[in-house]
């Protein structure tokens, strides 16, 4: 999603996973220009992010 290429706010696990996929591709890409599509859905990421933020806000109260 534009402006959110590494996931959603405060979703560290997802942000980390996307970077690890990038790093893995440094060694597994077979040719220049190759594109790897990740099995991630924006709607799911957004929902997970909202849940994480809700929990964090509860924790801060």
């Amino acid at each position: 999603m534009m402006g959110h290429h590494f996931g959603v706010p405060r979703h560290k696990e997802l942000q980390r996973r996307i970077i690890l996929e990038m790093l893995d591709f440094l060694t597994t890409a077979t040719r220049s220009g190759e594109v790897k599509m990740l099995p991630l859905k924006w709607a799911n990421a957004r929902q997970e992010g909202k849940e994480i933020e809700r929990r964090l806000e509860l924790k801060e109260v």
Partner: peptide, 8 residues
């Protein structure tokens, strides 16, 4: 809200 979403 979290810069890491675009600049991790």
């Amino acid at each position: 809200r979290d810069l890491n979403v675009i600049f991790p």
